[in-house]
Design a protein around this nucleic acid. Structure first.
Lengths: 332, 332
DNA sequence: AACCCCTATGAAATCGTTCTCATACAGCCG
DNA sequence: CGGCTGTATGAGAACGATTTCATAGGGGTT
């Protein structure tokens, strides 16, 4: 491997001068600079990133910790966050929890020794902060920027970038009520997910604002995560047990798709018999049939906000990304 | 930051001994070992990964380079590859090209100086190997394991793990012919994608095996990547121009979904008027209505193969992952 | 008792870069 | 002509871990 010493001796200068030329900081004689640059070019020298990191005290990587990168918003988030991070000349380390929190604990313990620039936590799951707090604090103390995306941890003094999940769910619920679609069911409550609870809160708030009490029979819990099969099963059970409802707000697009399939299999027309609203705004929603009304989340906006944090170096306490309701055939 | 010197002086030994204890290699007196371990515990010492990497000459990261991590197979691939890599005690660096090849060039040039353990190339796009070869070779010379996943680059002496795309497409085409669904259209040929060409080859091979010539009018090119809107547009145009076909093999599930939506919007019944087969085996396909027949790809199997490469250290020349046809309502 | 071997440990070099401090030399002023 | 200022550069330390080489003893053999 060609190193700074090789370049220096090739150019007939000291390593210090090579370093100076490449950093472009201190004044170097024009002739010397040219000679060094030529040697760099000629030998194809690239500074060793590891040595730089060691010397600098920290590296150039930001870790993205996802709950399940395969699902919903998170693939898009990974894509756009990577783009932002790369734009800043940093690298993205990906860590996928896959519904196992002990791995987060483990990762946090390892984090300070990795020389990370930052950690972007992008998991919707409620975390046991009592257990996580010590590791978290150790990480932050070691100069790592910690950021929670999608879950609001601002009450634990962790900068958070979150969607207005509650507002979005409320908007969707109001939309269904406006269409005279009461009773409205809620498909896919997950109690162990902060994001899931926020969505349910929006549903409840909107109902109560119109003097409607939440009917526990019309709230269908799931445990497995926001997947289509869970939506299919929960909706099938609801329909088969003869519950009366004229619309469904699903906690994710995948759940809504499963729910719509269940309705179709039972000869119920969407939206005539049951209207559906999904959550997430995934690309294929517009090509489901009927096209799916959905609360649209903005992975790109989140990624931009993440990029801005690392660009400016200043942490927001809590930044809220608006959601918007995209109305399509499944609810009209 | 607590380092090996701090631990050493706390335990009353030299840094060398601390290192020995942690490596567990050379014999260390039991009493000394216990004392060192206690100090490690007490001070919460974690070896600095950057310093280790510098000393060792390479780090513990593997880079995953995707074309578009948001699409089709690749989110699942990222998830499972991350799991495998983590299981080996390594970290995953994510690099998403987003349809811009010059960034790959750039990344390859930077790669040797990052001390990477390996690079897993997971992009379906044809690459200009003439341009890429020098950087590629430089990377491999510097001791980095290079691996192409999903695109066959074995002819360039790059170890490749690929799906049997051609076989899958042939199977799907035969299935449609067996159902007496000729003429069969091909939705979404991409000439600039090696994977896309392999899928088209399977289609053509299967037709020719039955003495049917490919009808160029029934092959619909797209340029934008395997997205549902491209499928919708291409299928709409095909139907509106009055082409005669009774089934469609799509180059991806997303394209098939768009195509099915286009058919539905024109009052055509799936599968009665037009049968559809998708490609990819994405989770939601079973909940499309009608449920989608698809050629199923196995991201997990690919990830396992990737893991095996780094576990064993030996590169396959070319490893082929079988595909299978999952038959559902959209084609029966 | 002298010698040797083996175990347990420490001192110091090393990885490649950056940065601080020191120095050499040129030019300028008194 | 001596001393001062300032620019251009080099020598060497530092980052934190690993590893080679050297050495101090303890125990065994002759």
């Amino acid at each position: 491997m060609v190193n700074v010493i090789a370049v220096a001796s090739h150019a007939g200068v000291s390593p210090a001068t090579v370093s100076r030329v490449l950093a472009g900081r201190v004044p170097v004689a024009a002739a010397t600079r040219a000679r060094v640059l030529q040697s760099v070019e000629q030998l194809g020298y690239r500074p060793n990133e590891t040595a730089r990191s060691l010397r600098a005290g920290r590296g150039r990587a930001v870790a993205l910790v996802t709950g399940d990168i395969e699902q919903g918003l998170y693939a898009g988030l990974a894509k756009h966050v990577q783009g932002e991070i790369e734009g800043l000349g940093l690298d993205l380390l990906l860590f996928n929890l896959g519904h196992r929190e002990d791995r987060l604990q483990h990762f946090l313990e390892r984090a300070p020794s990795l020389g990370l620039r930052g950690i972007v936590l992008a998991s919707p799951h409620v975390m046991d902060m009592a257990q996580l707090a010590p590791a978290m604090r150790a990480v932050m103390r070691s100069g790592v920027t910690v950021l929670s995306v999608s879950q609001d941890l601002s009450s634990f003094d962790i900068a958070s970038i979150v969607h207005d999940e509650t507002g979005g769910a409320a908007m969707a619920t109001e939309h269904l009520l406006d269409q005279d679609r009461a009773p409205v069911g809620f498909l896919g409550r997950i109690e162990t997910s902060a994001v899931g609870r926020a969505r349910f809160d929006g549903y409840r708030t909107a109902l109560e604002a119109r003097g409607i009490e939440v009917d526990p029979d019309l709230v269908w819990d799931i445990s497995k995560g926001y997947r289509a099969d869970a939506g299919y099963q929960a909706a099938s059970r609801a329909i088969d047990t003869g519950l009366r409802f004229r619309s469904v707000l699903a906690a994710s697009d995948e759940l809504a798709l499963g729910g719509m399939a269940a309705a179709a299999d039972r000869g119920l027309a969407v939206p005539q018999d049951i209207a559906f609203v999904g959550f997430g705004g995934l690309g294929w929603g517009v090509f489901a049939r009927p096209a799916m009304t959905t609360v649209s989340l903005d992975a790109y906006a989140m990624a931009l906000a993440v990029g801005e944090v690392f660009r400016s170096g200043s942490l927001p306490h809590r930044q809220i990304i608006p959601t918007k309701l995209v109305i399509r055939r499944s609810s009209c």
